[in-house]
Write a protein that binds this DNA or RNA. Structure first.
Length: 834
RNA sequence: GCCGGGGUGGCGGAACUGGUAGACGCAAGGGACUUAAAAUCCCUUGACCCUCUGGGUCAUGUGGGUUCGACUCCCACCCCCGGCACCA
């Protein structure tokens, strides 16, 4: 082929893409034979076009997948579409297209973009969440969970996005705003379907320690999110305002049982059931109702934003501290949450910042019961709560004990007395999956006036999403307006029933989609168990850090549910996780509003897929943010141009040349140096990808190889051809993970057999990794004073002798006594003198 | 506030278990080629200093420490990024 790379890259890339397509190049076997590698990248939402974040994500995955395939593994490298969700529906409302049509068109366009990048996906396994053959298994899993009590319906106060007209899970509320549209989230009370993820809270937390292939920051985020907290639940008997026992008890959760003698009041959440005991019409009830109205009004506008001013009222109820018999007023206040613990707390203003603030505002007593372990208690009124552990005072029989042992003995006594028990609390809440939107999986239940809530029988799955649905964006579930959908026979009694009209959160789809890839066309089960066992766990999962809590916790939860259903035999589906950094331009994320978007199509058109991929891999290590830099892209393009310019003109002469024999060229310093460089490059590229998952340094190594080869070629003769051929073919193979098209073309032009991607990954020959001369550093007292070129096997005395023979080094030794010699063969000599 | 990650040239980044700091790329400067420019190729490029074909000193956020030797280990501090945050 004649001419410059820039004239050819487009044709080369299309040629190989077409060949790969025609031969079904990346199809994985139904089950792996020997060693397998499941390489997974987070599937995209089909929003319309790829962005650079996708390109980066998929370039990383493709490099690893191609590398592992050449290393001889059976590679499963699939791709699909997270194709249910709001944007499709919003597009329908705004532009009048049907979500299904909008989605399909986007999938076609983006699929074409992915193919144009030359990514090695097994397209025969492509899945899409919005297709009935996928979502019927959502429904199937839901029914299984329903059977086991892991799915349930409950009337709850929920996060409500007024703009998206839907309920949001807690994880989807970021700083009080909707994670998608960023509008303020309010609160409303609705019947909702929940998945009991809290049943697995303990396991989800504990097993994080074993996920050694996950980044520490992701594990930390999940630990934060699960929020395990160890403490005690204490029963405070309820009394009325005059102190007479009123029957019943208030249970409070505390992590600071040691401070219980300092409790001066209790606080319950505004909707705590204990408040139901306040007689209707009483002055206390009227005050309570007035208070609830006030905080509700506020909830709707600023839920979850800044912490509000603490506000509360004395309910008139009284509770008796079982440890000292003290009768304490029970308040209700906005800072105590019904969702956490028991929805009630004992307030110890002396040792809790929130209680201190509240007590200060309402003039409630403050009593210190813990003093610093190593000194006298501070005199006078405290200025702040003292939250540290210490030594107990004014705590009856516990006075004098330190906090930790007091907690133990108080818990023991409380358990013996039947008024306290140890308790583990989690911040994690059950996962609300109901969405009042159209474009999602219908929840397969029917409400019957006679039989209650009845699951749709398995044989009737899938419950199809109807096509003809009016989408107005005016709120409420769109499906509720479709009579033919809503009206359904009760599967149990055959009477008239009403179908559930909410659809599932799309995180349900992505919590299990990667099992489906292993067995994508199974119509009898979500997947075959033996097939799953053969491909799992996922060896490498690559995606954005944005999914550290939601998606990646749901995945883990699902795996445990599947395990308990007997469908899989493991609890953790992802062995190694890589969270790649964002792609930035001008220091910030690319976005339409900032006008700093770099379009992948544009890059591919101007530089080709190989260059685009190469740059996203070269410019930063995978987990760091990547600043887009056009000049950097040019640099990568220039590298491929130089490869082309050097090797293509030589190709006709090289194609027929033999490759050098094992030890050939050892006697010629130039040839030996080149061969060493070639084999050292193989070694570096291999270990960097395999052991360290670094992709920028292997590319740097390839650039060095090219630089070396270029020097070699400058004064090469025809007799040097075998050496150039070895270097060129090796370069072609080592380029395969990063720039697969030019890799194939080079391989072909240089007379390689078959396709580069099908060759075994080159092995570095030991003899060429060993240098016959190395440069060692010579230090005097740890300071570098010279370098010597020596054989690697040089002994210590000889090294010292050569160092002394060097005038500069000798000058530093002049007149001093050698105290110690540190010698690292082939690396360093340090002479310590006094 | 709590938790996690990170501070290395003008820039992106290298440096494997403590052993020659700055690989590779970008940018910049100089040169060759050219009528000229672009492209390409070659050279230089951490800072400072000197008696300048060489050599020295200082340099990996700051200050200490361990060590023959520290970007790497330990202690204290500063700054940046991310997560959680009235969670009792």
């Amino acid at each position: 082929m004649q001419g410059e790379y820039r004239e050819h890259f487009d044709a080369i890339e299309r040629k190989w893409q077409e060949r790969w397509r025609a031969e079904g190049a990346f199809a994985a076997p139904a089950r792996p034979d020997g060693s397998k590698f499941y390489c997974l990248e987070m599937l995209p939402y089909p929003s319309g076009r790829l962005h650079m974040g996708h390109v980066r994500n998929y370039s990383i995955g493709d490099a690893v997948a191609r590398f592992q395939a050449m290393r001889g593994r059976d590679v499963l490298h699939p791709m699909g579409w997270d194709s249910f969700g709001l944007p499709a529906e919003n597009a329908a409302i705004q532009h009048g297209t049907h979500p299904a049509r909008w989605t399909s068109e986007n999938i076609i366009y983006m699929g074409r973009q992915l193919r144009r990048l030359g990514l090695s996906y097994d397209w025969s396994r492509e899945i899409a969440a919005h297709r009935p053959d996928f979502y019927r298994w959502n429904q199937w899993f839901f029914l299984k969970m329903l059977e086991r009590g892991l799915a349930y319906r409950s009337r709850r106060w929920v996060n409500w996005c007024g703009s998206c007209q839907t309920v949001l899970a807690n994880e989807q509320v970021e700083a009080g705003r909707c994670w998608r549209c960023e509008s303020t989230v309010g609160r409303t009370e609705l019947d909702q379907w929940f998945l009991k993820i809290t049943a697995y809270a303990e396991e989800l937390d504990r097993e994080l320690d074993g996920l050694v292939g996950w980044p520490e920051r992701v594990r930390a985020m999940q630990r934060n999110w699960i929020g395990r907290s160890e403490g005690a639940v204490v029963r405070f008997p309820i009394a009325d305002a005059s102190g007479r026992p009123g029957g019943g008890a208030l249970e409070i959760f505390t992590t600071r049982l040691d401070t219980i003698f300092g409790a001066t009041f209790c606080v319950v959440a505004p909707r705590h059931p204990v408040l139901d005991g306040i007689p209707a019409g009483s002055p206390a009830r009227l005050r309570l109702e007035e208070f609830l109205r006030r905080i509700d009004a506020r909830d709707m506008t600023r839920a979850g934003l800044e912490p509000e001013e603490k506000e509360g009222i004395d309910t008139g109820l009284r509770a008796r501290n079982p440890f000292n018999g003290e009768v304490l007023p029970v308040w209700t206040a906005n800072f105590v949450l019904m969702e956490y613990g028991t929805g009630a707390v004992m307030a110890v203003p002396a040792h809790d910042e929130r209680d201190f603030e509240f007590a200060g505002k309402y003039g409630l007593p403050v009593r210190a019961v813990v003093v610093p372990g190593d000194g006298p208690p501070a005199a006078g009124d405290p200025q702040a709560a003292r939250v540290e552990d210490g030594r107990l005072v004014a705590s009856g029989p516990y006075s004098g004990q330190d906090s930790a042992s007091a907690r133990r003995s108080m818990l023991r006594d409380g358990e013996a007395g039947g008024f306290a028990r140890g308790a583990l609390q989690y911040r994690l809440l059950d996962w609300g999956i109901s969405r009042q939107r159209y474009w999602g999986t219908p929840i397969p239940v029917i409400d019957c006036p006679n039989c209650g809530t009845v699951p749709v029988p398995e044989k009737d799955l899938p419950v199809l999403l109807p096509e003809d649905v009016p989408l107005t964006g005016e709120g409420g579930s769109p499906l509720a307006r479709v009579a033919s959908f809503v009206n359904a026979r009760c599967p149990r009694c055959g009477g008239a029933g009403r179908r559930e009209t909410d659809t599932m959160d799309t995180f349900f789809d992505s919590a299990w989609y990667f099992y489906r890839y292993a067995d994508p066309r199974n119509d009898r089960a979500p997947f075959d168990q033996a097939t799953i066992a053969s491909w799992f766990p996922i060896d490498l999962y690559i995606g954005g850090i944005t999914h550290a809590t939601m998606h990646l916790i749901y995945c883990r939860f699902f795996a445990k549910v599947l395990r308990d259903l007997g469908l899989v035999r493991f609890a953790e589906p992802v062995k190694n996780l890589l969270c790649q950094g964002m792609v930035l331009k001008g220091g910030t994320a690319m976005s339409k509003s900032k006008g700093n978007i770099v379009d992948p199509d544009d890059m591919v058109r101007r530089y080709g897929a190989d260059t685009t991929r190469l740059f996203t891999l070269f410019a930063a290590p995978p987990e760091k943010d990547l600043e887009w830099n056009e000049q950097g892209v040019e640099g990568c393009f220039r590298f491929l141009e130089r490869v082309w310019r050097l090797l293509l003109p030589l190709a006709p002469g090289l194609a027929g040349a033999p490759r050098p024999g094992d030890g050939e060229g050892a006697g010629d310093p130039r040839r030996a140096a080149l061969r060493r460089r070639v084999h050292r490059t193989i070694e570096r590229v291999t270990t960097d990808i395999e052991k360290r998952l670094h992709l920028n340094t292997p590319i740097a190594a390839l650039m060095e190889l090219l630089n070396g080869l270029q020097d070699f070629c400058r004064d090469a003769t025809d007799a040097d051809r075998p050496y150039i051929k070895e270097a060129g073919l090796t370069l072609a193979l080592l380029l395969q993970p990063f720039a697969p098209h030019i890799s194939e073309e080079l391989w072909e032009e240089l007379g390689g057999e078959g396709q580069a991607r099908r060759q075994p990954w080159p092995a570095a020959a030991r003899r060429w990794l060993e240098e016959d001369e190395v440069e060692i550093a010579v230090q005097v007292n740890g300071r570098l004073r010279g370098r010597l070129r020596v054989p690697p096997s040089l002994s210590e005395p000889e090294a010292v002798a050569r160092a002394r023979a060097d005038a500069h080094i000798a000058a530093h030794l002049e007149g001093r006594t050698v105290r110690k010699i540190i010698f690292l063969p082939g690396r360093l000599l340090n002479i310590v003198v006094g």
